[in-house]
Simulated assay, not measured.
Amino acid sequence: MSEPTASHPAEERVQKFMAEFEAQWRIAAPAFEDRNPDEPRRAFDLWRDLMVETTREHFTDDTGVNLAGSFSRPSVYGPDVEKFVRSEQVDDVFYVLTQTTLPLKSFHEYMLREQAGQWRIAAIADHYGDPTEPFEDPEHMRKRVAECGPDAPFDEMPEAQAQLDERRMFTDRVVTRPRDGETDEARVSRIGTLRTGSGVLSVLDFGYDNDDARPLARTVSPGTYVVERVTAFGRNAAVRVLFSDRDPVAWHPASIPGSGHVIGVDAGCVCIVDYPAYASVSRRAKAAAFDRFIAAESPTAIEISLGAEEVGIAVDSGYGDGSYPVYWGVDAEGMIVQLVVDFMMLVDQDDDGVLTTL
C-alpha cells in the first residue's frame, strides 16, 4: 500500500494481506502459465491451497470472501496494483479504501472487525465509485423520476408471452418440468413487505455495482405492500408485489421508459425497490446489504432496508443469471393490482416459441 504509512493495526493488516496475496500469486502464476494437460487441475489446486493459508492468516472466521474462486492476471490485490486512499472507523468496523491501478480503475474497500483481539478482514467490496457517496447522481435520478407517472401507457404484451398465466403461477399445485419430467410442488408464501415512499419502483440486479438502475415507467401509490414468492424444485420461480386484494384480469409489460420489460441479471439476485431510495443509498450500504443476501439461506428472499423508511425485497432469481420479464397485473377497472417478476422456471415453450405457464 502506498503512502501514508499504516498507523492503525487494521491498516497494517491490509498491508500484510496485500503483500502476502501478491507473493502467493507469484508462486501460483508459473503453474497457470505452464499447465500440464495431463494434470489440468494442478494449478487450481495449488492456488486453492495457497488461498486457504492466506484466508486463515488474515480473515475473520465467518468471512464470505472466497479468494480461491478465480485466478486472474495481473494480481487482483497487492501493493503493485493498489494505492491507499483513506481509512476510517465506524462503530466497531474499520474501513480501508484503496484504488486499483489497473486499466479499469475501481476501488477496493476492506471491512475489518476485531476477532480475538486482532483486526481481521471480514469482507472486501469492489466499487466503481466512492463507496460513501450516493449510489446514483441525485440530478440524474430526478430526471429519470420525471419520466415516470401513474398514467404512463402500457405496452402491448409480446405475442410469445401473451399466453403466460401469472395467476396460475401463484397457485399451489403440482408441476412437472418438461425438460426432464421431474415433478415437484409449487408453493406460494409471503416473504415480506415492500415499502415505497415515492411510488416509483425499480426492478434490478441487486448484485451489480453500477449507477444504471432504471425506474419502471408506471408508478403506484406510495405505501406498504405484501410480497410473495412461489418456489419449486428448491428455487424461487417467481416473485410478486400485491397492491390490492383484487384479482388481475389482464397483464402488461412493466416497461422502463424508452426501454423494455426484461431485466438482465448477472449476479443471480433480483431486487424490487423504491427507485429514489435505492439511488440515494451509499455503495457501502448496498454492499453490506448484498453480503447479508449472500449469507442468507437459499432460496433467498430477504427485506433490504433503504434509508429511514423504504424497504425493498431481494430474491434469488430462479436458476441464476439470465433475463427475466416483469409484468403489471391489472383488474377489471384497469387499476394495477400486482407486479410480477417471472423467473421462467415453470413455463413451457412450443415449436413456435409461444410460452405457457405449467
Rank of each mutant, 00 (worst) to 15 (best):
V315A: 04
Y110V: 11
Y225S: 08
A285G: 08
Y278F: 15
G78L: 00
R179C: 05
P299L: 03
H58M: 05
E333F: 08
G117H: 10
D205K: 05
D316R: 01
S72W: 05
S255P: 01
L46P: 09
Q161P: 05
R284C: 09
R284W: 01
P222A: 02
F293V: 03
Y128E: 11
F17A: 13
L306Y: 03
S2M: 07
V200N: 02
V174T: 15
D350I: 03
T55L: 10
F71S: 06
G207S: 04
A287L: 07
T357I: 08
A238F: 01
F59K: 00
G149Y: 00
D245P: 03
G307A: 06
I336N: 05
A213I: 09
P79G: 07
D266P: 01
V200C: 12
V227S: 06
C148Y: 02
P134G: 10
R13L: 11
P222V: 04
A277P: 07
V220K: 04
R190L: 10
V85Q: 10
L242I: 08
R229T: 15
V340E: 00
G329L: 05
P4S: 10
F290R: 00
A314L: 00
D126Y: 06
V270W: 01
S70L: 05
A116S: 14
G268A: 13
T176K: 04
C271Q: 11
D184Q: 10
D92F: 05
R48K: 12
P257F: 08
D342S: 00
T183S: 14
I121M: 07
R177M: 13
V76D: 12
L339D: 09
A29T: 14
Y95T: 02
P178L: 01
T101F: 00
V90H: 07
N236M: 04
